[in-house]
């Protein structure tokens, strides 16, 4: 049996928002160490991986591994019906065909229970190899969201170049071109670690979608290495992280 309590529904809302634009259905794998979700988007260009460890939950119990096939649009509707500061408990039986969500207001004066039908999803699970990234950049998540939004006005593709001097985002299209450069700041709000310089091209539409996770964290980590997908990681409080991997565009 699974029983997992989030102190605030707001966090679950933010997690669902960070997932639902990129994947429509996915399996949430629950074990005694926490919850994991991994899915490719429909076009198999990107992959999202969510990890929530038990430490973050107000209460967490999972006696036997359980996989919950979720329709994210449906889950979004259910969490939307609750108040952000409600506590929410997810409950599922060992061989569940439904997930129970129980919302409880602050003073416990209002409770709301929803049963969500689960799906039987046959999903491929991909092994993500350990990677030594050549460039690791950390910046405010709002800055990254702003850059992705501004870049996508100019072109479908965004070129990311990273050197010891800084990180540069470039877009070149019919309308003209855009270049945004950020350098390491003494304030520490932008940090850039470079082993070797790298330039790669990515689909701006996907980068933009990843920034749906911005409300989850003030900070975002961007990792690049030659010939491997870009990693964009948002930490989630004491729970863990949401990671987005994006396959690069390569010369024909």
């Amino acid at each position: 049996m699974l029983e997992a309590r989030f102190g605030e529904t707001l966090l679950l809302k933010k997690i669902v928002d960070a997932l639902k634009e990129i994947i429509s259905q996915s399996t949430l794998d629950c074990t005694e160490t926490g919850m994991q979700l991994q899915s490719m988007d429909n076009s198999h260009v990107s992959l999202v991986a969510l990890s929530l460890q038990t430490e973050g939950f107000e209460k967490y119990r999972c006696d036997r591994n359980v996989s919950l096939g979720l329709d994210l649009k449906s889950l979004a509707k259910v969490v939307k019906s609750a108040s952000g500061d409600d506590a929410v408990t997810l409950t599922a039986a060992d061989k569940a065909d439904k997930l129970l969500l129980s919302f409880e207001s602050d003073n416990k004066s209002r409770t709301a229970d929803y049963e969500l039908k689960l799906l039987n999803l046959d999903q491929d699970h991909l092994g993500i190899p350990e990677t030594n990234y050549a460039c690791i950049v950390q910046m405010p998540s709002s800055e990254f969201a702003r850059i992705c939004r501004d870049m996508s006005m100019f072109s479908e593709s965004v070129v990311i170049s990273c050197t010891k001097q800084g990180i540069k985002f470039s877009a070149n299209g019919d309308m003209g071109s855009a270049n945004i450069k950020l350098s390491d700041t003494s304030k520490g709000d932008i940090t850039i670690d470079v082993d070797e310089p790298i330039t790669q091209s990515f689909a701006g539409r996907y980068l933009n979608t990843f920034t749906r996770a911005t409300p989850l964290s003030d900070r975002v980590k961007i990792c690049l290495a030659p010939d491997v997908p870009l990693l964009v990681e948002y930490p989630i409080e004491d729970y863990g992280y949401i990671r987005y991997y994006l396959a690069p565009k390569v010369d024909e």
Binding site: M40, H44, V45, S46, L47, D124, H125, L126, G127, I128, P129, S157, S201, A203, V228, P229, Y245, L246, A247, P248, K249, V250, D251, E252
Partner: peptide, 14 residues
């Protein structure tokens, strides 16, 4: 001209 690669070509099925 650049081509979009697939994420599945980098990460192998388990």
């Amino acid at each position: 001209n650049r081509t979009q690669t697939s994420i599945a070509s980098y990460f192998k099925k388990e």
